[in-house]
């Protein structure tokens, strides 16, 4: 297992956002996390990323117990994150955004190779490298957010709602890129509101409801599950 989450609890004040969440992400797979707004998907990602301190439970990555590690150590261990809402640095140029993604030691060590890979994957960014990131279109900003994350040489990337606010065509493009990264050997954790697409793409998936895992299985199994189809696919 690359990533293993065991009995994870998290509280926002009195409210319990995560309760006993348990799942694993095998090396090289895509694992989707689906669920309604407020189900705890983003909390789960942020807890793994070291941006929230869980109140109980363990997070293991490869051979290390990374529970409670600060986010910069989690990144250095090889877990990258493309956060919800893109979060690019608007007044910095495209190039400066990419450089900022390469500030951790493992990113600096492979800067040239990573930059070549990112610009190859996203030729649009190469054309616009001197432009302020805030002037890019929504789709281009998402590309930049993904490219910036890749600059840190992650081995596992967590995507939080990568297609949010994008046109259907652009969302397809983002999914195509995630698949391409997966084929290059990256392990992926995918949080998506587009349940049909993400279940099709993923090897395994978990369904979060009110901070608990309500269902789990392969993407195909969940797509065939009546309850899931009713609740999340509106069928």
């Amino acid at each position: 297992m690359t990533l293993a989450v065991e009995g994870l609890d998290f509280h926002y004040g009195d409210a319990q956002a995560l309760a006993g969440v348990e799942f694993t992400v095998p090396e090289g797979e895509i694992v989707a996390i689906i669920g309604a707004n407020g189900a705890g998907k983003t909390s789960l990602i942020r807890a793994i990323a070291g941006m929230l301190k869980p109140s109980a439970g363990r997070i293991r990555y490869r051979d290390q117990d990374i529970t409670g590690w600060p986010s910069h150590k989690v990144c250095e261990a090889g877990i990258g994150q493309v956060a919800e809402g893109r979060q690019i640095f608007p007044t910095l140029t495209v190039m400066e955004n990419l450089e900022t993604g390469a500030m951790i030691p493992r990113g600096r060590a492979r800067f040239d190779a990573n930059l070549a890979r990112v610009l190859d994957l996203f030729p649009r960014l190469a054309e616009r490298r001197r432009q302020a990131a805030g002037t890019l279109s929504g789709g281009e900003q998402q590309m930049l957010a993904i490219g910036r994350c890749l600059m840190g040489s992650p081995e596992l990337i967590m995507f939080d709602e990568p297609s949010l606010g994008l046109s259907p065509a652009m969302a397809q493009e983002v999914f195509r890129i995630i698949r391409a990264l997966h084929e290059q050997g990256l392990t992926v954790v995918l949080v998506e509101q587009n349940v049909a697409l993400s279940l099709k793409l993923s090897d395994h998936a978990i369904v979060l409801e009110n901070g608990r895992i309500a269902a789990r299985g392969t993407g195909a199994e969940l797509l065939a599950d009546d309850r899931i189809r009713k609740a999340y696919l509106g069928l």
């Binding site: 990323a49 941006m51 600060p70 986010s71 910069h72 989690v74 990144c75 250095e76 994150q81 956060a83 979060q87 690019i88 640095f89 900022t100 993604g101 500030m103 951790i104 990113g107 910036r148 994350c149 840190g152």
Partner: peptide, 9 residues
Amino acid sequence: DAAQALGID
């Protein structure tokens, strides 16, 4: 938030 997510202390 984004800075933190990129591994900046």
